[in-house]
Design a protein around this nucleic acid. Structure first.
Lengths: 195, 195
DNA sequence: GAGTTGACAGCACGACCGTTCGTTTTATTA
DNA sequence: TAATAAAACGAACGGTCGTGCTGTCAACTC
């Protein structure tokens, strides 16, 4: 890995953390330069535009998400174990990933939903992949017999996603200490109701 | 209503709409002045600071939410009818309220969750009131016999909230046309599973 | 209808924004 | 080690940001 790539990666590490705190738009290049010890123009040259930087931040987040949430779950047996692993890894993936702010995908989702551009497109793709991953795990669980045959995998994936969203808000906005317990309970209830 | 108040209200109408599109932080006073036909300083004088403006925007949103979502539901019979009305009114309250962007409370939630200040405090209060309102409606539904006695009203409120969050994201970010149907289905399933 | 209050405009402030450019330093390769 | 390419810097650009201050004109009060 050349010097350039190395710098670029360390910029993106800092940028991801910072963006999780202040958002993709709230992130400023000058501030990021100060935090990484680079000059503004030197940092800028790595990406060419702020939008490109935002896309790269999202790409970095996605890779980290894949490593922390998805990959470990793939090592579980197909079916309910894998589905549960996906959900449980999801709950504190940002902490495990060294990201101080909340889930950047959720922040970006509301930040970008009324804009257009490459960052939005990238995010939409990412979210769809995640929902498909979840739905596939559900489908597999049905096939393994741990969920009833009437279960719609897409509906089910959305409901799991909803539990995560509510959990995230309760934890980060309301500082609700019972948030995680409630999320886990909601997940298990959902499973139990659909056997 | 004096002239000042009138202007203030019309500023806040525009500001709420705009903030729903670009966020509370993304909203700029200069741009808002242009849109309302005022000078920047003239508009600014109404609030004294950007943070105060943000709080007033949230207050405006809360009032509109109460009028569109909560008030009509209060006219329904206590119990399942009222609970269902709350949920269904919720789904497109922004459209009915003439707000072009998404639900400003959700946008603000992720924008403010790592900040501190009056806007955050106001939002937290608002969200807690809403969750309590929801939980009370659930409780009442249990008492009326339309939900089982084992139902935890707080848990149940959070699950409903989660359905809304997933719906909102599917609709606004993914432009998923099936989002509303899925949300309504999820709600009815939740009810049916807890009778 | 005169006097007082409040609403608003105009202008300026320092700070910071993303972006460009030319130059200098540092790495890589021959 | 010399030649070449890549990386980073410093200064500057035109703009916009939120926020003051001062003056003027319109709206209310008596």
């Amino acid at each position: 890995m050349g010097k350039g790539e190395e710098t670029r990666d360390s910029i993106l590490d800092t940028a991801l953390d910072q963006a999780s705190l202040v958002g993709l738009e709230g992130l400023s290049i000058g501030d990021l330069a100060k935090k990484t010890g680079l000059s503004k123009s030197g940092l800028f040259a790595h990406f060419g535009s702020k939008e490109a930087l935002q896309v790269e931040i999202l790409r970095t987040a996605m890779r980290r998400f894949a490593k922390i949430v998805v990959a470990p779950a793939q090592r579980q047996a197909k079916g309910i174990d894998r589905l549960r692993a996906l959900f449980e890894n999801l709950l504190d993936w940002t902490e495990k990933g060294g990201i101080r702010g909340g889930c950047i995908f959720l922040a970006a989702a509301v930040e970008l939903d009324d804009r257009e551009g490459l960052a939005r497109e990238f995010l939409v793709e990412t979210q769809q992949i995640w929902l498909r991953t979840l739905a596939k795990a559900v489908q597999r669980t049905v096939r393994e017999g741990d969920l009833g045959v009437g279960v719609d995998s897409q509906d089910f994936a959305y409901e799991i996603h909803g539990i995560y969203l509510a959990y995230h808000q309760a934890k980060r906005l309301l500082h609700d200490l019972g948030a995680k317990g409630r999320a886990l309970r909601a997940f298990e209830t959902l499973i139990a109701n659909n056997r």
